[in-house]
Design a protein around this nucleic acid. Sequence first.
DNA 1: TTCATATTGAAACATGTGTTTCAATTTAAT
DNA 2: ATTAAATTGAAACACATGTTTCAATATGAA
Lengths: 293, 293
Amino acid sequence: MQVSRSIQDTIMARFDGLSPKLRRAAEFVVEHPDEVATRTLRQVAKAANLAPPTLSRLARALDCETYEDLREICRGELKRRNRILADKAEALLQLSTETVPGAKSGVFIAQAGAAIENIQDLIESIDLEKLRSAAKTLATARKVVLFGTSSGLAVAQYFACMGRLAFDNWRVAGADGSLWATSLTDIGPGDAVFLVSIRPYGNLPVRAAQAARDAGAEVIAITDDLASPYVSIASECFIVGTESPQFFPSHIAALALIEGLMGMIVRRGGNKAAERIQQAESSAHSIGEYWVN
Amino acid sequence: MQVSRSIQDTIMARFDGLSPKLRRAAEFVVEHPDEVATRTLRQVAKAANLAPPTLSRLARALDCETYEDLREICRGELKRRNRILADKAEALLQLSTETVPGAKSGVFIAQAGAAIENIQDLIESIDLEKLRSAAKTLATARKVVLFGTSSGLAVAQYFACMGRLAFDNWRVAGADGSLWATSLTDIGPGDAVFLVSIRPYGNLPVRAAQAARDAGAEVIAITDDLASPYVSIASECFIVGTESPQFFPSHIAALALIEGLMGMIVRRGGNKAAERIQQAESSAHSIGEYWVN
DNA sequence: TTCATATTGAAACATGTGTTTCAATTTAAT
DNA sequence: ATTAAATTGAAACACATGTTTCAATATGAA
């Protein structure tokens, strides 16, 4: 079967050279390829609040002979998506069974499907009271130190990225050249420690968490198993699913938990947090840290 | 949302009372609802070897005001087939929302729900061919350099964690004290650069990506918008949804893409990658890096 | 057979289609 | 400030759309 280019690629190839209206049209087409495939030009134009000629011109700007060609690409997109859904259903069925070394693209779909299931499990099993309590701890702590090893560290750093926007007292242990010990020595009651640890559990974080707990700090942990050492160490421990058809455990659910937690924290933080975020953003703009245009 | 009757039901209801030609038309419509939804009456007529008025009359015979109504039913059929999974996810969400009372719980559920939707969109719109191509590039590159800023850096580091298990030529620019420039100077054809950049786009990565591209390296980018600078810079650019009820964009879909990509890469890598992974794991065990019991 | 009725497709029809023209307007360059 | 080029939408355009008409044909009843 001949594989037609996706509209995404078709549009991405020419997007930067498009005029404002044509961009709006292009955006509408990528977001609603089904409408383009099934409705008429004028109907699509009305739905997108655009003049009919704009769509006609868009087709030309995308190297199509005519609008009908663009529509044909959208038709292909619909068919492809149906095919992918079929693949997904199949891949999900084979998820539990052993994966065949025959190796086709089902790998990707199975992975993504597992990700969705892990998040669904998270939603169903999460203890909102515990979550609220953790949000309060992190939002009101005198100091928050985050750590982890390898993949857990990356996830913790992601959390810290967002946290630093809202608070000025979040630190990642081991970042900016400092040693873990340095970040943890002056920790005590009123402080909070946050960590993500997925199997295999690193040795250092376990001992660090233990030390923080002994020093009287709150320890909030995300881990993946009841047998994890953090279950007994942490004052607030969340267990997330890491099911994956691959050799590595999926960190998707952990990230979903973190994003949700962050949302609740900012909610708690109120205006102060919101102001700090806005301030951080505008100062980043003024020193030209961001790419524009 | 009101559910339109399926074409099967619509046609079965009146099939017995149809004349020979109308039956043939009806059969064609049930077998090719997509053609009816996307092509014109005359095109469908030709494809089915029927006179145009036959289809027009079929619509009337099926209690439709006009042929357009019949076409609308077929459109609904297509949408339904595409939306089954999304509906399922939504239903699960609905379920968990009902079982758990509480005002603030909405924040978390909404975030997780958006995460699922973003992954859903990713699965539906992903171009598997492009993915395979990216997997090949990363698996066979002489050297792979990963970078990003703030949240994007964290995600890239996560990717690097996994990549380093399978390959010894993956580096994160800016990690271990080296400057970006150092990591990027000796890059050229045969090398690959990978980056994640979600709005607002950092300035440095844009320039770095441009430089890498100019030097002849493959640039694989994950970003969030058609208007992103990477759309034109990258040789392989993936756009992921970042919808979120919070002030920050969700990186869940980006992570899902990365995990899926990693799966495909390891598949490609074959035994060599698998061996390296096992080796890394056992050596980590022998030096007591992992916590046991 | 004969007649009435139902079915069918070619051609004509009104209407809506995608496209082009063109004047108004914005944008960029000098 | 002036000019040239690009962008945009209203109106006009040629043409294709779905529908209807109508004559040809098939079907069935007497």
